[in-house]
Each structure stands twice: as C-alpha cells, then as structure tokens.
Design a protein around this nucleic acid. Sequence first.
DNA 1: TTCCTGACTTTTTTAACAAAAATATCAAAT
DNA 2: ATTTGATATTTTTGTTAAAAAAGTCAGGAA
Lengths: 205, 205
Amino acid sequence: MIVTNEVQDVKKEKILEAAHRLFLHYGYSKTTMNEIAGELSMSKALLYYYFPDKSQLYIAVMRRVAEDYLKSLTGKENTFNDLKEAFEFQINTQHEFISNNYNFFDFFRLNEQCLPDMIWEIVGQVHQSERDLLVNAINAEVIKGKIKPLANPDEMVELLLEALYGVSGNALSHKKTMFPNKEHLDVVRQKRLMLGDIFIKGLMY
Amino acid sequence: MIVTNEVQDVKKEKILEAAHRLFLHYGYSKTTMNEIAGELSMSKALLYYYFPDKSQLYIAVMRRVAEDYLKSLTGKENTFNDLKEAFEFQINTQHEFISNNYNFFDFFRLNEQCLPDMIWEIVGQVHQSERDLLVNAINAEVIKGKIKPLANPDEMVELLLEALYGVSGNALSHKKTMFPNKEHLDVVRQKRLMLGDIFIKGLMY
DNA sequence: TTCCTGACTTTTTTAACAAAAATATCAAAT
DNA sequence: ATTTGATATTTTTGTTAAAAAAGTCAGGAA
C-alpha cells in the first residue's frame, strides 16, 4: 500500500517534470498530451490515469512551481536588516521567478480574463505570501522607529506591488521591440528597485 | 478660395464631431462609415472626399481629442503652490480624460501592439506634455529647496508615470467584475493620489 | 487490485470556400 | 469644387469537411 503510493508519487513526479519542461518551452496550447507521453515513453492514456485532464495537469505543475517560489519566500521574515533589504529581496526574487518561467505563463496571456478558479487560488496564495513578507518587514521597521506607524500597512504594500507591476516597460512608450528580452527585464528590475527606494523614503518620518 | 476652405473646414468639423460621437459610443470596429455618413445625412463617398480612409478619420478625431487634453495641460506650469498640487492635477486631469473617452480607446485595446505610427506620435506628444509639466513642477520644488536636487528629474517622472499606470486595479487581484465601472476608476484615482503623495515624500530630504 | 495500453469516441482546431458586410473607388451630375 | 449612385475590392462571417488533439474505456499485465 505504502510502497504503491510511493511508486505512484515518483511517476507523478516524472510526469510533472516532463510537463513542466514542455510547457516552459512551447507554452500550454502548443504542448500536446501525446508529446508529454512521448517524452516519457508512456501511453497518453496513462497521463489520464494520473491526472483528470490537461488543465489539471497544468495546474499541478503550476502548484509545484508556485511552491518552489513560496519556499524561497518563507523563513526569510526577520532576516532583513532594514526595509530596503526586504524590498530588494522581494523584487529580485520575483524577477528571477518570472524570468525563469516566462514561457510557462503563456497560459495566462492566452486565457487572459477567464482563468480557472484553482489558478486564482494559487496566485492569491503567492500574493498573500509576498504581502505578508513585506508587511512584516514594514512592521519591523516601525518597531525600530525608522518609519512612522501606518494606519494600514497592508494597503501600503498592496499599493507598492501594484506600482511595481506598472513598471514593466511596454506600457507607456512606443517600444518597437515588443518582446521583453532578458536585457529589458533587467532594466525593469533596476527601475523597480529605484521605485522601492523612493517608496521607503516616502514612508519615513 | 478662402470662403471655400472655410466651408470645407466647417464640414470637416461636422464629420469629426459625428465620428467622435459614434466612435465614443460603439468603438472603432463597431462603427461603420455608412453609419457616420447616415448620421450626417450625406453619402459615404463624401467621407472619402474629406478623409483618405477610416483609420485616418479616427486619427483625426484622436488628434482633436488629444489637443483638448493638451489644452487643459498647457499654461498650468508655475501655477501650483507645491509638487503635491501638480501631481494631483496630473492624476485628476488624466483620470477625467480617460473616463470621458473610455470607449473611444477601444481602438487601442483592439490593435494592442500594432498601432499606426501617427497614433504613437500623438501619444508620445501627450506623454511629453505630461512629463514636461511634472518635471517643471519638480524643478520648481528643487529651487524652493523643498526637495533635494535630482540627478535626472525626467527619469523620476517617467518612473512615477509608469508606477501610476500599474495602479489600475485589475492586474493583481482576482476581481470577478472585470470591466472597470466608474466607481472602480475612482478607487484607482484615490490610490494614485496616495502613491503620488508617498512618491513626493520619497523625493524629499 | 493497481497499473498500463491500444483502439476508440468526442471535442477542438484548421482549411477551404461561399455569402455577407464593410471599406474604398470612380465616372458622372450638380 | 462638391456630391452621389453604382461598383470594385477587401474583410468579416458562416458553413462544412478534414485533421489533430483531447479524453474514454474494455481489457491485458503485474
């Protein structure tokens, strides 16, 4: 019984791995269940033995990816010397996460405004963790007396995250090169770090 | 000769008016040249006498709309008591502009990443004016000694505008109501004003 | 019983093409 | 110089058939 489940888990793991690789490379819509099965030299039907359908497989991969990201966030609370460090950590960690999984999120661009609830749940969880981290850092800074107490730290963090989101280049200016290459992503990161700095100063006495 | 041109201009004006009304109500793709002509009780062919094609007509309307917006911006320089007032003015004026012409910009959402160069020219002009206004306000504040001199005020203004752009709600959270109603636009405005405040404080000594 | 597959059905995507609607043109009238 | 009806051209829409992909299932192997 236990052995069986372990074997099952290992196989599931293999599937998730292969699916992740292919989704990352080709995006959701350009990856077929046949290809995933082929990658593992198993029959397509077996995929359906382990996962109810394609979207649920994608979501399972997504959950793993998100969990990795969450892991890199947890336990970091109270390890920052100041708010600046916390902001920088959040910006850099998210930057790396997005960079590494850029094509994987084709799914989001595809189904822009009608994503499964399960996806939103995961996204919400991730955002919650990000907010928690930053709110915690802000509160620590308040206690240290470095910034003034805020009526609503959560609201401030929300505002910052939305503002950071806007700093993603292609919105305002007429960039002929539409696809954000690595270099461009890095410009965005630099700008975000600057915005973080200004924001912190804006919260000080 | 002169009389003739005046008459021509009046007629062009009429056309632009009707076109604006219909584009605003139905959006670009849902407005036909026949409808515009019908609205003015003239033949469709006449529209093509005054404007080379539909997109150029749209652009002409766009130019008028943009000019109105630019007018509300010009002459305001040095009329603000402080930077906060300037930021608030920019945010509120733009908010009103977007609110009033919301449907008109369907064209942008439609042709998301391949707009005619002429459009980008107008958009660039508008952005330039917005930047100029804010850079001017920042410089005034620097002279008054209220904020520290900046290495690159333009860059700061650019950053602020991008950040403000990000504060538009529907990006991060799982809002079930996707279409931003008037009320929602107002929440965005409030948030932007708050971000403006924090940003200003972040620029101070 | 659990795991696995080949053969099968159902759904979705694609291609081709005709009909309809919209854009755009132009000779002729005012 | 303006204006229009008629007409040409392009784009969108609707239909259908073929292809591809998703998803199912009876039955075999471990």
